[in-house]
Design a protein around this nucleic acid. Structure first.
Length: 792
DNA sequence: CGTCGGGCTACGG
DNA sequence: CCGTAGCCCGACG
């Protein structure tokens, strides 16, 4: 499937890209003038790995471009994916042939495009496809705009008629030029606009619901959820993570009702909410590819909570069933307790008393937050900006708004212009740029990559300044091919270079703003690009574009990734997480002066990120980091130290280590820092501040536990020392390895570990808990011993 | 590389 | 002396 997809993707895109490139972008790039060319090239390179594509002879210019535009336009009309793909494919091929560019040898055998379509149907998620299409068309838009600008200087009207379109389209062939696009957009506008708007709303309410959940405003949470319930019935643009978001919300809804045993989510099954949540979780695991660790963690907590709630409510028969169902295997201390309580028909036990449902909710929320990206929703940003501007207006008097908001009289329009920024930049990963740069560097008179990179930024900024109105949120990169331009032209009073626009008005300049900006872009490109945009633009930018869009993030399906922990704190925090507090986000978002700097930062972070290998532990750290940003202390395992997140963020690791080291890990309390936990080092500094008080709290919390373990330890050390001595005297072969008795807390940790990761995963267990001077085999042996003793 | 089972050994009774 | 917890080692995937 993956292979097939790639092949098809290539197959369908090659001719078009080739075609585009034949029209001079490459030339421009080679002269170092068109960084957008580089961007496209990077995209293409990563898709095709066919460098020779770029060096094809250019045969046609504007006519070819227009044809390509036609293709895109036509295809966008097609409602169904098959049509889009097939049309694109066929027409692209036809066009390429008619224009005379030699089709390129496509690597490997390629399956017919159908294959992908079918595959996609069977294989429910088509996010990749959607995203790809969105990217592709965006890039096309940008490209067309660029080429248009570039060629306009000497640009003349297309000297070549379009090749005949395919039969299906032929009937309406005569009409299909300039005015067609306009008609079309009128027809589809209503639905399409609604879809886009609904997408925003969903995005917003999802974010809101999660926020409410986080802040324990559960009534509001339910309200938001109900709105979503209704909304989901409406036509809506699907976005990649929509499925995830819906599931997450369902999941949280069930968790939310978890203590109400009577509530039923699925009328067909008499499940309690938590059981329903568990089922949902299990289906999510496969569908959403939840990492095993995360899943195990959440599912264990959930199962225990199910049992706990049953027992607490004296539903022993149900508890018994659940026990059989969820804890089939013996060898789990909690299981034993549960079983004991069920058998006795009793609910008095500290395990039950300690059920902390709010905390459980929080833990589940944390888990959910790992599943999808939390970005500041577009609507929220817009609203914030509006509010801010109202304040500004109040302060400065009404005159100023009028000055800055030239075409649109209403403030709502103004929001749009303020808010929208071109986000083309973000989808081009720096790594791609780097690759491309390397590949094409010969053609470039010694320009360093960073220089190019800078240009990209300048250029992107130029684009933004010249009013490319796209929503900023990553979740807002619309997958629907036709939606974006309409959303753009509909929402921005100053038109951007959309395909439609170019087709409809190839040479007219509908809005002065665009034109001047475009011209400035051009001069900037041909001359040495100045660091700042032209004065007028800059002013306007500073007035109208207070939103600093840091979203270098490409929306991903799974865990939120990337974050440069120190450099880009500020820039990543609000961009990735809508859960940011309102004020904070507002503040940052509207801090105009930050704009430039933050862009730099995002650049840096971008580069760091792409270089970084993303070990899972890293993403955990990120998670932790983000949570830190919200000043919300996260799941501190309090009753069971080992019971924290299995995806163990550094601070939780540290916490565990803190207590553990004082217990049994290390005889020297001060030496707790050099814990052999590779991934946690960078955090030490950041955490050291909060360290002591945290530790105190931890201690206080675990007072009882600590106490008994200290006793344990007191009795432990002397004997060890003695033993060490003795053994070193006696045994020679035993090189330094001393026999250490297993302490109570070590044993507990081991039990927890086995419960979490399962027997046999000694390395995981060892990595998760900081077992000092214990090998995997040691753990195994200890477990064997314990089994032997019937301790487990 | 991690895991497993068998075997060895030091310790305590 | 024996039983055993903890450790080592070779085999195996």
């Amino acid at each position: 499937m993956g292979q097939c997809w790639l092949a098809c993707r290539r197959w369908f895109v090659v001719p078009q890209i080739q075609h585009l490139l034949a029209n001079g972008l490459l030339e421009q790039f080679r002269k170092g003038k068109t960084v957008l060319g580089l961007i496209l090239a990077s995209l293409v390179i990563s898709e095709l790995e066919c460098l020779n594509v770029y060096f094809q002879k250019r045969t046609e210019t504007i006519a070819g471009m227009r044809t390509a535009v036609e293709i895109v336009q036509t295809s966008r009309k097609a409602k169904r994916d098959e049509e889009i793909f097939n049309t694109l494919f066929e027409e692209a091929t036809a066009v390429v042939q008619s224009v005379g560019v030699k089709p390129i040898a496509i690597p490997q055998t390629r399956p017919p495009p159908k294959c992908f379509i079918e595959g996609a149907k069977a294989h429910q998620p088509n996010c990749a496809k959607d995203r790809y299409r969105a990217d592709f068309f965006k890039v096309l838009d940008i490209l067309f705009a660029t080429v248009h600008i570039l060629l306009r200087g000497g640009g003349k009207a297309p000297g070549r008629t379009l090749p005949p379109p395919l039969k299906r389209k032929e009937e309406e062939g005569e009409r299909r030029s300039a005015n067609m696009a306009a008609e079309e957009s009128v027809n589809t506008n209503l639905v399409e606009v609604e879809k886009v708007v609904n997408r925003w709303i969903v995005d917003y309410y999802f974010s809101l619901a999660v926020e409410f959940f986080k802040t324990h405003q559960y009534a509001d949470f339910c309200a938001a959820r109900d709105i979503l319930d209704t909304l989901i019935e409406r036509p809506i643009e699907s976005i990649d993570d929509m499925a995830i978001k819906v599931r997450v919300l369902q999941f949280l809804s069930r968790i939310n009702e978890g203590e109400e045993l009577d509530v039923q989510f699925d009328p067909e099954q008499s499940e309690t909410p938590l059981e329903s949540a568990l089922n949902l979780l299990e289906s999510m695991r496969t569908d959403l590819q939840i990492p095993q660790k995360d899943f195990d963690y959440a599912s264990t907590l959930l199962k225990e909570m199910i049992l706990g709630i049953f027992i607490k409510n004296r539903k022993f028969d149900k508890a018994n069933n659940a026990l059989i169902l969820y804890f089939p295997k013996p060898g789990n201390c909690k299981r034993a307790i549960f079983m004991h309580l069920i058998d006795r028909g009793s609910n008095t036990h500290e395990l039950i008393d300690q059920i902390n449902f709010p905390r459980f909710k929080k833990e589940m929320l944390d888990f959910c937050q790992k599943l999808c990206l939390f970005t500041v929703p577009f609507l929220q940003k817009a609203a914030k900006t509006l509010l801010e501007q109202r304040i500004e207006v109040q302060q400065d008097g009404a005159g100023r708004i009028d000055e800055q908001d030239e075409p649109g009289p209403s403030s709502s329009l103004q929001i749009n212009t303020v808010q929208f920024r071109s986000e083309m930049y973000p989808f081009i990963q720096k790594i791609r740029l780097a690759v491309t740069y390397k590949a094409l560097a010969e053609g470039l008179e010694e320009k360093t990559f960073s220089a190019v990179e800078e240009e990209v930024e300048v250029e992107a900024q130029g684009n933004r300044d010249s009013c490319s109105p796209m929503e900023a949120s990553p979740a807002d990169q619309p997958p629907q091919t036709d939606a974006e331009p309409q959303a753009q032209s509909g929402s921005c009073s100053k038109t951007l270079y959309t395909v439609a626009r170019l087709v409809v008005e190839p040479d007219s300049q509908p809005c002065s703003q665009c034109t001047t900006a475009a011209e400035e872009m051009e001069t900037e490109r041909t001359e040495k690009p100045p660091q700042t945009p032209s004065p007028s633009n800059k002013e306007e930018n500073s007035l109208q574009c207070p939103v600093t869009d840091k979203e270098v993030v490409i929306p991903t399906r799974k865990l939120p990734r990337r974050c440069n922990r120190t450099v880009s704190r500020a820039s990543t925090s609000f961009a990735e997480f809508s859960s940011d507090s309102e004020e904070e986000s507002l503040h940052t978002t509207t801090n105009k002066e930050l704009d430039g700097k933050l862009h730099e930062q995002s650049n840096k972070s971008l580069s760091k990120n792409s270089n970084k290998s993303r070990a899972s532990s890293e993403s955990d750290e990120e998670q932790q980091e983000h949570l830190d940003l919200f000043k919300t202390p996260v799941k501190r395992p309090h009753k069971q130290p080992s019971k924290g997140s299995p995806k163990c963020g550094p601070s939780s690791v540290e916490d565990i280590c803190l207590t553990d080291s004082s217990l049994d890990c290390s005889p020297d309390v001060s030496s707790r820092h050099p814990i052999p936990q590779k991934s946690s080092t960078p955090h030490k500094a950041a955490q050291s501040k909060a360290g002591p008080s945290k530790e105190v709290k931890e201690r206080a919390k675990r007072a009882t536990e600590v106490k008994e373990t200290w006793i344990d330890e007191d009795s432990f050390f002397p004997s060890v020392r003695n033993r060490v001595k003795r053994s070193s005297e006696k045994s020679i072969s035993n090189s330094g390895a001393t026999k250490r008795k297993w302490t109570e807390s070590e044993t507990e940790k081991l039990k927890e570990g086995v419960k979490m990761f399962g027997e046999g995963n000694w390395s995981k267990i060892k990595a998760y808990f900081c077992f000092k001077d214990r090998t995997n085999v040691n753990l195994k042996d200890r477990w064997r011993t314990m089994k032997h003793q019937n301790l487990v």
